[in-house]
Amino acid sequence: MLTIKNLRASVEGKEILKGINLEIKPGEIHAIMGPNGAGKSTLGNVLSGREGYEIEEGEVTFLGEDLLDLSPEDRARKGLFLSFQYPVEIPGVPMVNFLKTSVNEHRKFKGLEPLTAGEFLKLMREKKDMLHLDSQLTNRSVNEGFSGGEKKKNEIFQMAMLEPKLAILDETDSGLDIDALRVVAEGVNALKSPEHSTIVITHYQRLLDYIVPDFVHVLYNGQIVKSAGKELALELEEKGYDWIKKELV
């Protein structure tokens, strides 16, 4: 699905990612944990093609293609989804229009006919029911005036609509109450299949009670310093990151 080899990236001359290696196979869920400033969000941004990041070295292959060669929209259309840590507001653009454009762009890329209004609304209703979402949410402007929890749920809703091959959840759990957390987890688990993979970037192990990862990686100072099974998350929760830092010295 995704292979990252020796990826180095910098922002304004400052190196943030210092040689990342990661292999994600279809159907796997990987958690990436680490202290603030370790480079977790940068990894998500670099993979999704955000501007402002300089790739110094390394290669990333996504579904057999050179990911770094693709425009951000083509990465998305090929099935890479980023759930934003801070979802962006777009005043005056109804969520339903935004999503319809998005879904149909994805379909066009795959050579499929656009969904009719009826088909689209039906799909939207199914996904909203699945996630127990407030039905008014889709009539409002994209993220405008949404509460923190609503914004995160809205990210997961978009993910459910687009059914990406690889979803990257960038601290989707931060600031969520237990109910919202459950919605997020349900969304991810509903997508779980042998064809779909997920990267969960998180600070806390709490989300991993609901989304059980196959692998846990610790990102520290721009490198993955430790990888193990799900038990690593519990260990981190208990001992904090200092333990890792000490181990490295």
């Binding site: 501007e51 951000p72 507001e89 999503l99 998005s102 994805h106």
Partner: peptide
């Protein structure tokens, strides 16, 4: 730019 990138990330040019 963040608004445009948000749209890009959803497959919109």
């Amino acid at each position: 730019e963040d608004q445009i990138f948000y749209c890009n990330q959803r497959g919109i040019s």
